[in-house]
Every structure is written in C-alpha cells, then in structure tokens.
Write a protein that binds this DNA or RNA. Structure first.
Length: 569
RNA sequence: GUGCCUAUAGCUCAGCAGGAUAGAGUAGUCGCCUCCUAAGCGACCGAUGGGGGUUCGAGUCCCUCUGGGCACACCA
C-alpha cells in the first residue's frame, strides 16, 4: 500500500529542505475529517523563518507538486497544511491489499530476529488466580503479534517451581500430608497446606528455618524432597494446562526455575571473578548504589542456597546462548520492578554481548485487587481463573437462551463468548492501570467488550451468508463507498499495520483491542445506516465487499489478541 | 523515610515522542426492529485533583502540594 504519510513528508522535504524524518514526526492525522487526512502544522517554523505560520503554510503549499490522482486537495487552515487523499485511491488500496493478502497485515518486518517472551509463569502448587490472567493474555498477544510480523518467537513459561516456597510446602506436607487426598483438586489442597504452614512460620521462626532447610535439601537432591516436589509439579502442570486450553495459550518452553538449578554455579563463578560479589551478613550480594539502586541484589543466601535472582541470571545466560535473542521480554506485574532493575544491571556483569543486555525488557502491568484488598495465596484471598471463566461462560449461555434460543451448539458459542469477554477485558486498557476486580464488569457483554466485537463479526458473517457471494474486486465501483460511514471503515483498515507496529514498539496489546473497538463501531454504524443487501446491484456489490474485508480484519485482529470468533451467536 | 508508578464525566477507560472544538463505554433520560441478529444504532446529560512554570499552543513537559498504589536483603 502507498504510505501516504511518507509520501507527503518527502514532498514537503523537497519544498522546505527539512529532512523528511523530522517532518514525518510532525505530521498528524486530524481528529476532524473536515481537516483532511493528514496535516502538517507549521507553527514550529515561525520563529526561525520569522513569518506567521499561515504564511509559511501557504508558501509551502505553493511549492508542493502532487499527482492529483493521489492528493485531491491541499488546504491552508490557520497554521496547518491539510492534505486530502484521493478517496477512491485510498479505497482501492485498502480493498485490494486486504483481498490479495491471505493474512492482512502480516509481514517479514522481524525476519531473522529472535524474541523470547517470558509470560504466565505461575507458581507450582498454588492456585491459578485472576492475578495471573494479565501476564498470560498480554504475553500471549505479544507472542502472536511478534510472530505475525515475522519475528522468530520463543514463548517461555518460566514456572515458579523452585525456591523456599517448596521448602515450606514440603514442611507442611510432612506435618499434615495424611489429612489430604490429592487425587481431586490437588491445588486447592496444596494451597491450604501452604496457607497453614505460612501461618505457622509467622508464629514460629524455627519452622521457617526448617522450611529453608528443606529447600536446601531439595537443591542437594535429597530423595524424599525431590520425590514430593515432582509430585506437586506434575499435579500443578496438569491443572494449569486446563486453563491454557481454555484460553488458547501456548508455550515453546516450560523451563521453569528448577531448570536453572544446576546453572547457577556458573553465574556465581562469573560474578566472583568480577570482584563485585561481596559478603554481607553472611549472604553474597552485589551492591548497586553506583547505578542508583539502593537495595543490593542477593546472589547467595546466608545458608548457601540460591535465590530467584540467581536463577533469573542463569536464565539470561541460557537464553542468550540457546536462543540468541534480540529481545527477552518479561511480562510481570510492577511489583517486580525493582527485581528486574537489579538483575538487568547485574546481567551487565555476566560478560555477555551488549546485544543481550540491551535486549532485556520488563513489560510490567498494574495490580489486580479484589474489592476486599490485595490478593494473596497465603491469606487465601483470591478468585480462581477457572471459576471466573465458568461464570462468564454461564452468563453467555443465559444470554443465548434469552436472545437466540434456536442457536445450534450453544455450549461451544457460550465458551467462545464467555472466554472472549475475559480475554478482551484484560487487554482493553493500558497495562499500567491498576484494576479492582469487578465480576459485574466481566459479566457485562454490552458496549466496549469482547462480545461486542464478536457480535459485529457475526453480523458481517451473516450479511455475507445472505448475500451468498463475494463480488470480484475488479467489478467494484469505488464511488459507491464514498459516504462517510464506508470511508471511516476504510481509514481504520488502512491503519492496521501501523497499529501492529505500535503494539510491539510499546509492548501494549491494548492498542489492538482499541483498534477492534473502533473497527466494530465503524462497521455497526455503517450497517445501521445502510441497507447492504439491496436492489441496486452495483451498490450492493460495493457494500458486500466492504463487509467482506471488515470481516477478514476483525477475525485476524481478534485472533492476534487470542480471542476466538463464533460464526453465530 | 527513600525510590518508582498513578490521578481525565457518577463509574470504567481513549487521547499517536505538546497541536485544531478533550473522545468512547457504562449509569440516567429519550428515540429506532412488517427491513441483513436490538449482545445493536442514534440523541441528550456529564470531565482534565489544587497551585505555579516552559511554549505561539499543555490532558500531555518541568516544579510543588494533595490523594491512591507498589517496592525497599536472604519470598517469587
């Protein structure tokens, strides 16, 4: 497709001798379409040229030479230079691009680049609760978009399957294991054990030390500890997999923390050699005051066992060697900001190529809290993902019975709608915003929600079905799509590639979610305003075709977000 | 106490490395189905936490105050 912004900036460059890169950063898309498709504000030139912005704009306009087939009109309004694209050209560009590309917007932008994304990463033996949803769906969406843009992506589920928490669980299991039957709902029971042992640790420092000792034994491959650790791990993964199946989440690697247990020695060795590893209160630490981080990074605990920072560092070395990553992205809540700041600094001491240390990126997101406060597995205050999904699926089913009782395969549709609602809800706003979990917001399927996107898609489907044919692009008379509703859709579809680029640039899938809302709204307005199947063949062809491309983009974009589309609902 | 994040309609959120009259959804009121799915469309109502500053121009940048969140050495 023609990059109109680029084209305009090149022409302005010729007229002004300002480099086009600078110009392109000034070019904007006016909010009001009456001000054209692109605008170049000239205010910033006023000072150096000692002229009024309007005069500058007029002078630039006079020097510009444009093919009338591309730019219809250039207007000077205030200090702005407004460009109007030939609408038929824009329409033709969009329609042909969407139809000729099997998957619209797909590219090889990232060819040859490797991206590691570390996401979801739940803790073994703990319930999979709604606090884990964001990392799972944000990571999943980034995974899809990177891949779509031609990057080689490695999705890693860095399971929390190691650490003192296991020492605690082992201690609890030793004490009360007989009371529990782990054949059903094992995680709930392990969570209960975990809660109990934590309470006991609080009361009794000795118990806590025993827990730490258990972890040390686990590191030393003590037979009993390894055996029950394995048992907990297997039971947990089985439970997690159920949720991943529902959400459609996939990973290329399940190497969790334990995987790096035998790789931490090398980290310690390298750090020893730098002379930066110092003893403090019995532990081995790296001080980071020189880079403005007051809290040192602990590498070895005072009892000699490793800590998650050590294992994260080992993982960086491993991923650099194994995947040769250009970027290694960690999707976690901002609680861990300090931790990642620390290990990204310490990683610079590991003797790795700068490529790797520069490629480390922490994608953090806001906290999810319950109305009753912060979620805590220890305190037993949480909502399980499974329960939430069941609620939304049931809600979807209720609505189906109410609105479309004759629908076939209601269960399948309810599943897509209920899960779609949850996924979309988690991706629709800026990552950094904190969220107070509101079940009613999740169960609302009206307005800016996943089901709204699905509903719009289903409408395009049913229009196409009723039409019974897809017209030939060459038969479309473009003038039939010159109304504001159609043009709005065309503009949005034109911007798709740009949105995908922004998603990875800012690691912000919500851009894509907003995009889907915009496109759905634009189509709904168009649908409401126009009769698509009508008795004017030429008009009908054009509108059916526009429906066809909208359908395609809605499906593709939703798939990238991880949301499945029903055919009917 | 120190550091980081955050503050936009009653509520939930948009606002592209400062640009034209701050946009949606939801709630409330009111319209639209003999017509392609009303989980929809349209209308009304309603907002930049306080105070300074930089700029031709500030929701956006800087300072400050206030409110909220997170983190701050052997948890992850």
């Amino acid at each position: 497709m023609i990059d109109f912004k680029q084209l305009i900036s090149k022409e302005i460059e010729k007229a002004t001798n300002i480099e086009s890169e600078k110009i392109i950063s000034y070019i904007e898309i006016p909010k009001d379409t009456n001000n054209g498709d692109y605008a170049f504000p000239c205010f910033f030139l006023a000072k150096s040229l000692k002229k009024a912005p309007q005069i500058i704009a007029t002078e630039i306009k006079d020097k510009l030479e444009f093919d009338k087939k591309i730019i219809n009109k250039i207007e000077v309004v205030g200090g702005y230079l407004n460009f109007f694209i030939n609408r038929n050209l824009m329409t033709e560009q969009v329609l042909s691009k969407v139809s000729e590309q099997e998957e619209y917007g797909k590219s090889n932008l990232g060819e040859g680049k490797n991206i590691v994304i570390d996401y979801s990463s739940p803790n073994i033996a703990k319930p999979f609760h709604i606090g884990h949803l964001k990392t799972t769906v944000i990571g999943g969406a980034l995974y899809n978009v990177y891949k779509y843009l031609g990057y080689n992506v490695i999705g890693v589920n860095h399971l929390g399957d190691y650490g003192t928490q296991f020492g605690k669980l082992i201690e609890g299991y030793k004490r009360w294991g007989d009371e529990y039957d782990l054949t059903d709902d094992p995680i709930d029971k392990l969570a209960d054990i975990y809660k109990r042992i934590n309470e006991l640790c609080k009361q009794d420092e000795e118990v806590l030390n025993k827990c730490r000792e258990n972890f040390k034994l686990l590191e030393e491959k003590d037979e009993y500890c390894v055996k029950i650790w394995n048992k907990f791990r297997e039971l947990s993964i089985k439970e997690f997999q159920k949720i991943y199946d529902l959400l459609g989440t996939k990973f290329d690697s399940w190497n969790g923390e334990a995987f790096y247990a035998d790789k931490t020695d090398e980290v310690i060795e390298i750090l020893e050699k730098t002379g930066r590893l110092v003893e403090s209160e019995g532990a081995k630490i790296i001080k980071l005051d020189d880079v403005g981080i007051d809290t040192p990074c602990i590498i070895c605990k005072s009892n000699g066992s490793t800590i998650y920072a050590t294992r994260d560092l080992a993982a960086i070395i491993y991923r650099a060697r194994e995947y040769d990553f250009d970027k290694c992205i960690y999707v976690t809540s901002y609680e861990q900001n300090l931790h990642f700041k620390q290990i990204f600094e310490v990683a610079k001491l590991l003797g790795l190529d700068e490529k790797y240390t520069k490629g480390l990126e922490h994608v953090s997101y806001g906290m999810v809290r319950l109305p009753s406060g912060k979620m805590s597995t220890r305190a037993g205050n949480f909502v399980k993902i499974e329960d939430l999904l069941n609620d939304t699926i049931n809600r979807a089913k209720e609505i189906i019975f109410e609105k479309n009782p004759n629908l076939e395969n209601k269960d399948e549709v309810a599943k897509k709608v209920g899960i779609g609602a949850v996924i979309f809800n988690n991706l629709s706003s800026n990552r950094m915003k904190d969220e107070i979990f509101d079940i009613n917001a999740m169960l609302n399927f009206q307005g800016e929600t996943g089901p709204y996107i699905q509903y719009t898609y289903v409408r395009t489907k049913s229009v196409l079905e009723k039409a019974g044919y897809i017209p030939n692009l060459t038969d479309i008379v473009l003038d039939n799509l010159n109304d504001e509703y159609s043009q709005n859709i065309i503009n949005i579809i034109y911007n798709f590639e740009d949105v995908l680029r922004q998603v990875i640039e800012k690691s912000e899938p919500s851009f894509l979610a907003r995009y889907l809302i915009d496109l759905s709204k634009a189509y709904s307005a168009f649908y409401n305003e126009n009769k698509i199947i009508c008795n004017e063949k030429e008009l009908q062809d054009a509108r059916v075709y526009l429906t066809y491309v909208t359908n395609k983009v809605l499906r593709q974009a939703s798939k990238l977000l991880g949301m499945e589309m029903p055919d009917k609902m």
